[in-house]
Nucleic acid binder design. Sequence first.
DNA 1: CCTCCTTGTGGAATCGATTACATGAGATTG
DNA 2: CAATCTCATGTAATCGATTCCACAAGGAGG
Lengths: 338, 338
Amino acid sequence: MPAIKDVARRAGVSVATVSRVLNDHPSVRVDTRERVLAAVADLGYRPNAVARSLRTDQTRALGLVISDVLNPFFTELARSVEDAARELDYSVVIGNADERPDLQDHHVRTLMDRRIDGLLVSPTDGGSPMMLAAARAGTPMVFVDRWIEGEGLDRVPVVRTDGQGAIRALVAHLCALGHRRVAIIAGPAATTTGRERVAAFRSALRESGLALSADLIGQGDFQADSGRRVTARFLDLPHPPDAIFAADNLMALGAMDEIRARGLRVPDDVALAAFDDIPWFVHTDPPITAIAQPTGALGRAAVTALIDLVEGRPAESVTLSARLVTRRSCGESEGSTP
Amino acid sequence: MPAIKDVARRAGVSVATVSRVLNDHPSVRVDTRERVLAAVADLGYRPNAVARSLRTDQTRALGLVISDVLNPFFTELARSVEDAARELDYSVVIGNADERPDLQDHHVRTLMDRRIDGLLVSPTDGGSPMMLAAARAGTPMVFVDRWIEGEGLDRVPVVRTDGQGAIRALVAHLCALGHRRVAIIAGPAATTTGRERVAAFRSALRESGLALSADLIGQGDFQADSGRRVTARFLDLPHPPDAIFAADNLMALGAMDEIRARGLRVPDDVALAAFDDIPWFVHTDPPITAIAQPTGALGRAAVTALIDLVEGRPAESVTLSARLVTRRSCGESEGSTP
DNA sequence: CCTCCTTGTGGAATCGATTACATGAGATTG
DNA sequence: CAATCTCATGTAATCGATTCCACAAGGAGG
């Protein structure tokens, strides 16, 4: 693999001149530039990004640590982040934490070691030590979807979706269909989305004159299995719920598994709704009512904020809103509410 | 961010000694080592991977260029690749080609510029120039799932799944259920999986005494939309097929969309089967019969082969087999055939 | 015609690590 | 006791770029 000095030798100039051509510095005579470009083409030379990064102290790479790649929501997010970053000439290095704090820490550490220019995180737990260290060290950092609080983290912008309105719409929808005893499969209390969705659900219920009793709050971990376990517990109750709201799509899948395994039907025996909409929800039996996040916009906003930070501009938190997409899993009534 | 010389200064030794401690070189006195380690801890020092890579000419990073992140098959593959790589202390940098040759080229170029140690590719088209260049330049490279042929590419190992047996089982299954006029939504002819699946399907049909007429081969591109378009064409035929086999899961999704949009039912009006099994297929209406690939094993085998290459050992191609998982989308009969 | 700019180019320091080679102290050996 | 070897450590070159500074040539202005 040819280096800059090979190009210089072949073009009969110094490495400094080659570098100037490569970074199109103005003061290079046209014929010299052409000679250099010809040498570059002849040799198939490509600048070594590693060397360049060492010298310039920037990698033009962003790190994205997500909680679970197998969750379509995060896959879509990752895709939109990559698209947005590519347009600004940045690469994205993804780390999958698999909802495990230790893995999350591993990825943050590796990314920092590789000196990525900025970090996009959707934290799994409350206070990963590496993340705190990174934030304190002044690494440009933005939280997406979920965030954490902590010393030194108050200046980290948060790009997220507010589900309150959509959850209120969902509760109204459930009430209108006659459901009164509704349960929630919550996400981990260590995550903001885990807590917020429960809180929003509870207050929406209260507004509709319903209460969320303790035995109808099940603790899940955003993965399918936990949805299944929690649902089993709900259905074993002497007085089981007539509607279940899963705080993410994977847990809804698990819930559906369990309901079906017991020979029960959705929505006749239990209604089901999920946070996070995905293409497959249209095709399940029955199609599942869900709260959709604007994933594309979320990813773009996160990248914009992060790159503002990276390039020394101030960045602000962004909150987008989710919307309810009603299908048949809570009872008859098709259509979507904006 | 502290550098090695800061550690050296604080420990009262030279940078060489610090480096030796960090790479646990044997000849360092125990008390010196402890002093250095203490300095490292005090400063929260982490070696700069960029500098290290420049010097050692290895990044301990692998590139993975996949055709489409939104396709659950590739997401699962990416996840298993990352898991396997992490165990061997390598990071994985993913590039999503989105089934676009230009994007694929972009990612291969970026990864090469960043001097990744090896490249795992599931090629989108026939002969991306950068990929050929990379292979010729001697970059360790392994094809996963799909592969391409070309000058200089004959020594690139291929880790893939052979679907012939499973496809034969699928055809037998369709025949047993009385389907005679079967169609296929093929993948791009530029991809091996695109061609192979059609070929295997055709020869399995022949073995069962059926022919695959030209109007029942639709050209798709492995994305949902194309599945929908091709299905529309099939259903507009004066004599439409009674079974459709989609060469991947996204096209099956598109097919299902179109079938449903016309008010037809699966499997009563048309049977449907797909290549690539995914968790959601259990929950669609009806559950979809699919051919499952051993994704985890595929990813692990690919990483093993690539790292063998990276570390100078010879590597071999690996072929695993797929298996048919029958559900209800082709007609009654539940269960799975190994 | 001398001085002062401007323009184009080269030399060399630099980024943060690794590592071959040099060095000095102490141990071993004949 | 001199010669040699071993061990622990330091000095400095190196990887491949970028960039500050120096410098030469030519043009402009007085």
